[in-house]
Amino acid sequence: MSAQSHPGRQRTTWLIFIGLCLFTFVNLMPLLWAVLTSLKDPRDAFTIPPTLIFEPTLKYHIEVWTENDFVFYLMNSLIVSAGTVFISVPAGSLAAYAISRIPRRSAGPILSALFTIRMFPHMLLAIPFFVMGTFLDMIDTYPLLILALVAINQPFTIWLMHGFFLEIPRDLDEAAAIDGCSNWQAFRIVILPLAKPGMTVAALFSLLLSYNEFLFALVLTGTDTKTLPVAIAAFGGEDISSWSLSAAGAIGIMLPIVVVMLLLQRHLVRGLTAGAVKG
């Protein structure tokens, strides 16, 4: 039976493989286009049909990193992202742990409420944040943007971490209590190390959200704290001759994230697949 089904199974595997290759290609097209555009002279960038053979230039990459205050905006982005991650993940983890250890009857409404906040259109939140920021004279400061990003990020962090904490048996909390731990010690010494893969994933998602966030950054920042996504948008505009520069900026903005992803890849895969197989 297995001999008969084998060729059929192989064909299905190939079809899935080809389908996934096409899907990947379609997804990578914008990135590929950005990479090519960043290496082209603007005249080559907009020829129809597009030219694949051209004289590549790093001129715009160099220009991005040396002029236009790119590094300044990058630092702003990194400060805001780091601030968001360092508040969002610990606070979210504590909340998630607490929710995971209360009866399901009570946890359900809290999680649903968090989910509702997540579904709220961010645009509607940006305006109140702007009003509050103006009132408190905090517009164009890091804390305001960081707090806003923590607020919109927190439901997701709590949801994600809640799943991880649920997988850690309560017996461990109880064993720790009997072994002499207070609730805080049990969390810090026993539970937290086990939730590390989950925290890595939560930190990465939080980092991605805050690093790429555009709307809040546009509304709440100014010349002092403008982040890269807002700054890059200003590189391009309607002037076609700036699009190569804009594309080089887009590649530049990606690089720190790619480096972080590569460094944490092992934890990321472990975190995303945690609980898939019973240990």
Partner: peptide, 20 residues
Amino acid sequence: LHPKDRDIAMVFQSYALYPH
């Protein structure tokens, strides 16, 4: 009293060993 102050030790059904 808190469990730690009762001077007891417990063996759990799941063993509850700390995996790390």
